[in-house]
Nucleic acid binder design. Structure first.
Lengths: 190, 190
DNA sequence: GAAGAAATGTAATAATATTACATTGTATTC
DNA sequence: GAATACAATGTAATATTATTACATTTCTTC
């Protein structure tokens, strides 16, 4: 029963298979982990892969469901442990307002594996669209610089930050004004 | 039996009684609501009063418990509805990372009732101490200005923001170095 | 004082997250 | 290559936070 035909021998259960593109990102992530002396196990890889397949933030229990289809029946701690690991190693972000998770953009556009975690800390800022649920990670260091400055003045030792902006993205805003050609601001849909 | 010596007559159940100081803040809050055409009911006043009595962020279910001692047996929606109201009117903030609530500082130091909600939007930035759990609201407009600028560039319509910095506050940092034999003041009750 | 709107009461349940402990897998040392 | 120690995972139960749906009450306005 234990004969899994896996040359590299790493998983008791076969991992999900993802698109070549995502597999590539997963390989990058694995390299980052190795570099940090951390182990990218099959479980963690699967969770990260699933997060990467989503265009939008994913909740822990969504991931749990998706893991189940693989023939396994994991429980919440399985997912939360993987998420904790991925968070710790800067591979994903948690969107506080949504209790959901997205990949770090640096992973998506990965080429510079070196100052990855540094960059992650610097750019953990998000625009959340209430309409289409898309979350965009902002590449801007000004906000963090300001926060650092403030904290320095207050002698506050900064460990982590979250900056989240909720509103309507350009695309959805355009959609709306297209739907209502004449009147724009009068309707309040909530 | 129904003779509550309350001129304005608003509560079916007697509201909590708070310290003069907090009552004063509650009066301010009530004034702000009136100004906005909103009703500060006994229920909402009680919840806000309870939040004001806490030195630290309070969870919804903590508030629920505290409301119960008054002889009532409210259910979660009661508290959440009050919280929603208080949030909408800029009287409290929700700390996303803690799923907890704190009064808006403008309420604590209230004298300028006029541009209250404006100011609130501008300063919804918090320093969260992991050690003593104290949350400090930062009075700084730079961060929001930066965010506005970014959003303008992206054509993102900004509706609300949260900026949270987690770390160790000056006081706790000092406490820690005081643990190591040297100098510094070390007395403090939570 | 009746109609309609706002607020509250109530029961049930959904969604998110953690604890505690047993088991398995992996790396290392002898 | 067995013994060990530690990291990772499995599993069951439960804690915490939040919402839905609908009945009832209260308030405002006419």
């Amino acid at each position: 029963m234990m004969n899994m035909p896996r040359p590299t021998s790493s998983s008791p259960t076969p991992p999900h298979s993802f698109s070549a593109h995502i597999e590539h990102q997963l390989d990058k992530a694995t390299a980052l982990c190795t570099q940090q002396g951390a182990r990218m196990t099959a479980q963690r890889r699967d969770v990260l892969g699933l997060i990467l397949t989503h265009a939008h933030p994913v909740g822990a229990y969504d991931l749990l469901e998706e893991l189940k289809t693989a023939g396994r029946r994991p429980a919440p701690p399985t997912v939360y442990r993987a998420l904790d690991f991925l968070l710790e190693h800067g591979l994903i972000h948690r969107i506080e307002r949504l209790s959901a998770f997205i990949p770090c953009t640096n992973l998506r556009h990965c080429s510079h594996t070196h100052e990855h975690s540094e960059a992650c800390l610097h750019t953990a800022q998000f625009l959340i669209c209430r309409d289409c649920k898309t979350v965009t990670e902002i590449a801007d260091t000004t906000v963090l610089e300001t926060l650092k400055h403030i904290c320095k003045n207050e002698n506050f030792v900064i460990q982590s930050t979250s900056v989240e902006v909720e509103g309507i993205c350009a695309h959805c805003a355009a959609k709306h004004s297209a739907t209502h050609p004449s009147k724009e601001i009068s309707s309040q849909g909530a």
